[in-house]
């Protein structure tokens, strides 16, 4: 079953056309990496998928929900779509555990007890089972990002979106976050990641997509995509990324 279906998405910010007809289908259990230079539209596209950006034209269906501008419809969609941000965006006044419990209690109506158990389980899953009562400012960047992943997981989403989640982290912390994502991939989580970690995309993603100037420029199974890029633009991009 397709978890994400996006057809011919267009999006402009004022006069600037950021997305010029992007279509993408992601099947259940698939891990798809989105790569490209800054400004190529990859993050904007990802944000369109859970309605953080409104699209100008096209169709989006995620986790069986059609994208809607109606708040109630949009909330239904968002319950089933997790997103993790570059800057973690944890709620600073809540502990790690409370950050995770908030949505299950308020949105899903779980009892505090059930939500607490679920939060504890998700924290253990990202290797932070002992930091339930820590506030975000007591955690390292990598730990904060893992809490953010756990927060998304607690809603039991059908798909997880990752928006450059390691870009603010040093290599060591990047490693611990990527390890969590990799273990989720092994467990069969459907994921769409915008990333600059080429090695990671190659190893973990089933499919990689290269975006350029608001369109999908080239895509393919990760192995071939990286070993035998077809277009000169992708070849140039990969050369510059490897350095």
């Amino acid at each position: 079953m397709s978890v994400v279906v996006a057809k011919n998405i267009h999006k402009s910010f004022g006069a600037l056309q950021v997305l010029k007809g992007v279509s993408l289908t992601v099947e259940g259990g698939e891990v798809v990496a989105l790569i490209g230079r800054s400004g190529s539209g990859k993050s904007t596209f990802l944000r369109c998928l859970n309605g953080l950006e409104t699209i100008d034209a096209g169709e989006i269906e995620v986790a069986g929900h059609r994208m809607s501008s109606k708040p109630a419809e949009l909330r239904k969609l968002r319950r089933d779509v997790g997103i993790v941000f570059q800057s973690y965006n944890l709620f600073p006044h809540l502990t790690a555990g409370e950050n995770i419990m908030l949505a299950p209690v308020q949105v899903k109506g779980l009892s505090r007890k059930a939500a607490r158990d679920e939060a504890q389980r998700c924290l253990s899953l990202v290797g932070l089972g002992d930091r339930f009562d820590a506030y975000p400012d007591m955690l390292s960047g990598g730990q904060q990002q893992r809490v953010a992943i756990a927060r998304s997981l607690a809603m039991q989403p059908q798909v997880l979106l990752f928006d450059e989640v390691t870009s603010a982290l040093d290599p060591e912390l990047t490693g611990e976050v990527l390890a969590v994502i990799e273990s989720l991939a092994r467990d069969g989580m459907t994921m769409l990641l915008v990333t600059h970690e080429m090695g990671f995309a190659r190893r973990v993603a089933n499919r990689t997509i290269f975006m350029k100037d608001g369109v999908i420029h080239e895509e393919g199974p990760s192995a071939e995509f990286f070993s035998a890029p077809k277009t000169p633009e992708l070849q140039a991009f990969l050369r510059s990324e490897v350095g």
């Binding site: 859970n50 953080l52 708040p71 909330r75 239904k76 968002r78 319950r79 779509v81 997790g82 997103i83 941000f85 800057s87 965006n89 944890l90 709620f91 908030l102 949505a103 308020q106 949105v107 927060r151 998304s152 809603m155």
Partner: peptide, 16 residues
């Protein structure tokens, strides 16, 4: 603004 985005992405209503 990113705090609001995180909350909305989790499905919280405006008042929540």
């Amino acid at each position: 603004r990113s705090q609001v985005e995180a909350a909305e992405s989790l499905g919280l209503t405006y008042f929540q």
